[in-house]
Amino acid sequence: MKKVYCVVALLILSGCGTSRDYTPPVDASGEQIFSTACTECHKPVSANVAMVLSGSNANKDAIVKKFQTGSIRMPAFKNIQGESANRLAEYILANSQVNK
């Protein structure tokens, strides 16, 4: 039974840590990009709060780096670049709660 749990955990983690090929439409808003690329894992906290950010991640550069490079549990979205990346980061900043 332990093997089954290990296999399931590995499958879940491998799916979350991989790169995603999503490329937003050129004219997509930050909210549209967030809805398409992020809400599979990041469910809005409330009607007005998309995410909760730590103080160290509550800046545009950190947010862009995070979604472009990913992490152990988060896939990289390398195709969100340029103005699309800026719009997504601005949307996340404007619609998130910051924990100091």
Rank of each mutant, 00 (worst) to 15 (best):
E40C: 05
Q32T: 08
R87D: 06
K2M: 10
Q68N: 09
E31L: 09
A9K: 02
C38N: 09
T39D: 00
L93V: 01
K60E: 15
S14K: 06
K65N: 13
P75I: 08
V45D: 07
C38M: 10
S14M: 12
K43V: 14
I72Y: 12
F67V: 02
S84W: 02
N57T: 08
F34S: 01
S35Q: 15
V26N: 12
V8C: 10
P75Y: 07
F34M: 01
E40W: 10
M74T: 04
V49G: 00
Q81P: 01
V64K: 15
L13A: 15
G82E: 06
Q97I: 08
A9W: 02
G70K: 02
R87K: 15
A58G: 05
I12F: 13
T36D: 08
Q68M: 06
N57A: 11
L88A: 07
C6L: 15
V52M: 11
V7E: 12
S14R: 06
I63Q: 05
Y91C: 03
T39V: 13
F77L: 10
L53R: 02
V8S: 08
M51R: 14
S84M: 07
M74R: 05
F77Q: 03
L93G: 06
I92Q: 00
S46T: 13
Y22A: 01
R73G: 13
I63H: 05
L53E: 02
Q32V: 03
L11D: 06
H42W: 05
Q68E: 09
I33T: 08
N99M: 11
A85Q: 06
N57E: 13
P24T: 01
V26L: 10
F77I: 02
N59P: 04
S71F: 05
I12Y: 11
G30S: 06
T39Y: 03
N99G: 05
A76R: 03
A58C: 03
P24K: 01
I92E: 00
I92N: 00
P25T: 08
G55V: 07
K2L: 12
T39Q: 10
D27W: 01
T36Q: 10
K3C: 05
A76N: 04
E90K: 09
D61H: 07
G70M: 03
V26S: 14
R20W: 10
V4R: 10
